[in-house]
């Protein structure tokens, strides 16, 4: 039997689709195709193969940029939270990184490194990295010192201290960094593709924009939403519930 929250979610979706269809029917405009038309377009792009290949190319960039941003961001954030001298060193750069517009970083990466794949991935990772570092730094600062003292007194080896004392306290912060990071990376990857790549969802959306093909734009957006929901429900939520099981 479905629970109340699931009912609510389906009910909202139904109302949303219904309102969309009604609005499209009333307006009768190319600029607002109805959901049925968008689904038909989605199917067409799927059958043609362009949708799947574009999503896979974008997904690959997202995964690479995400891994780079999380890897370096966690390392820098951890060191900043743990050692005040590192915090002082990187704090100014971090504030700058947080506030420089994504577009500036993308343009500079393309200008300096050329219109190549590595520049595209680096631009996305650089945009995301400061946010991860700040989140992890706050997590490290909030770590329970009394529990750390246990590891220190009992001379627990560093690898075990990191895994069993530090990490479990950092999980909520790492999950927050991953979630916010993923949403930001999706958005930036599309801009990067629009500006300097010849494949991927961003490039395709740029092409559709030139032809004012709103139906295809919405079809691609729908496919994208599906991918995001899949990652959230298959990967992030189960992972989060597993890591924070002890809280219940």
């Amino acid at each position: 039997m479905l629970q109340g929250s699931t009912w609510g979610r389906w009910l909202f979706l139904g109302i949303f689709l219904g309102a969309w269809q009604v609005a499209a029917f009333v307006l009768q405009s190319d600029q607002l195709p109805g959901p049925i038309e968008v689904m038909q377009s989605l199917w067409r792009h799927l059958v043609d193969g362009d949708l799947l290949s574009s999503v896979l190319v974008t997904l690959r960039r997202v995964v690479l940029a995400f891994a780079l941003a999380m890897g370096f961001g966690v390392l820098i954030g951890f060191l900043m939270g743990r050692f005040p001298v590192v915090d002082t060193m990187f704090d100014g750069v971090l504030i700058m990184g947080l506030n420089i517009p994504a577009l500036v970083v993308i343009i500079l990466c393309y200008v300096w490194f050329g219109l190549v794949e590595s520049a595209a991935v680096a631009a996305v990772a650089i945009n995301k990295l400061p946010l991860v570092a700040v989140t992890v730094r706050e997590g490290v600062r909030a770590v329970d010192r009394q529990l750390l003292q246990v590891g220190q007194v009992f001379r627990v080896p560093l690898s075990r201290r990191l895994r069993y004392i530090y990490l479990p306290q950092l999980y909520p912060y790492l999950m927050a960094a991953a979630r916010s990071g993923l949403s930001l990376i999706w958005k930036i990857v599309l801009v990067v593709e629009l500006l300097g790549r010849s494949d991927g969802v961003g490039f395709q959306l740029g092409t559709f924009f030139q032809f004012f093909d709103i139906t295809s734009i919405l079809a691609y957006t729908l496919a994208f939403v599906f991918v995001i929901y899949t990652i959230e429900s298959v990967l992030l939520r189960p992972l989060e519930s597993r890591l924070t099981r002890w809280r219940s």
């Binding site: 529990l147 009992f154 069993y164």
Partner: peptide
Amino acid sequence: RLMPWLSARRNIELV
């Protein structure tokens, strides 16, 4: 000062 995410056994094992 037990690690709340580790079982009693794992808390002992840790040290």
